[in-house]
Design a protein around this nucleic acid. Structure first.
Lengths: 159, 159
DNA sequence: CAAAGCAGCTTTGATGTCAAAGGTAAATGG
DNA sequence: CCATTTACCTTTGACATCAAAGCTGCTTTG
């Protein structure tokens, strides 16, 4: 099997965990993609797939299309289409960068700011519920391990 | 900002972690979707999106279409199309359940078993690299926390 | 300053995914 | 038994995503 490359006693617990995680990941992804949209925002044709884009803008302020695509690990095409869509509906604010007219600065429309923060809250709530009972160093370990996994996957890709 | 004085020592660490995780998740998902396919399997038109389906079958043996869809948190439609595709190419083996002819039992074709296990190995490798340096109870904590998050998201959805 | 090259975004055509509808087989119950 | 309901899968039509090509404006170079 995939997990049985090594047979030393030391890696035994590791293989069990790896197996669990390999099966868990796709489920988790599927679930996150189905977080419900509050009614207040549904009228603006906002869907779960917009959530991560809006989170980026809310946390890190106005960004360009390429910036967003890089952070979301998604093609610039996709961001461009989503932004075009959402700015047409008044959720986002897309304007030329005066300093470089090739660029488009994307920001959350001020009057939608609050509603969007409210949408993000329950998503964050799930994490908060899980992290609150942990000790600070346990939280740190958890986040660092996920970050390390992300980095490991990125390296895996260059071979 | 991250290093600034903490006002509420207890909740501050949580909020920082939540913020990091909210931004990390979509990136991680994007990366995983781009794990490269070994050349040996590319000729069979296997792509990264097939990986989790094959992992399920490899770990948990033959399953029905609905079972697979539930485990992957994906629509039965999608599984049905993928299975139809892959069984046409000899990667999977789809046959009627003799006990209930509505059901289709899906399994990995025996002669492809090894090649697929080899494909899964590097994906598992990323996890293994990250988990190996941890203490056993740290690994346990990590996996349990992710499982708890999955459960929390599932609950969030029913409101 | 003109020409070539580059950077950032959008458009286009192809593919993946899904919800809803359709088809067939088992279970229920009168 | 036949009729109805339920379970499982597939087909279909609509939409999300992406790679490649196209467009525009900045930057470099002679």
């Amino acid at each position: 099997m995939a997990g049985s490359v090594r047979r030393e006693a030391e890696t035994d617990g590791v293989d069990t965990a790896v197996r669990e995680l390999l099966l868990l990941m796709p489920r988790m992804v599927g679930r996150v993609k189905r977080i419900p949209v509050p009614e207040a925002l549904e009228s603006l044709s906002l869907a779960p797939r917009h959530l991560s884009l809006l989170a980026c803008l809310l946390f890190d302020g106005p960004l360009t299309v390429n910036d967003l695509a890089a952070r979301l690990e998604v093609a610039p095409t996709t961001v461009s289409l989503m932004v075009g869509d959402l700015s047409g509906k008044g959720v986002l604010d897309r304007r030329e960068d005066p300093a470089d007219r090739r660029r488009r600065i994307v920001a959350i429309a001020p009057n939608q700011h609050e509603a969007i923060a409210a949408w993000l809250a329950p998503g964050a709530q799930a994490w908060r519920r899980v992290l609150t009972p942990l000790e600070p160093e346990q939280r740190r370990l958890f986040v660092d391990t996920l970050l390390a996994y992300e980095a490991a996957v990125a390296e895996e890709r260059e071979r």
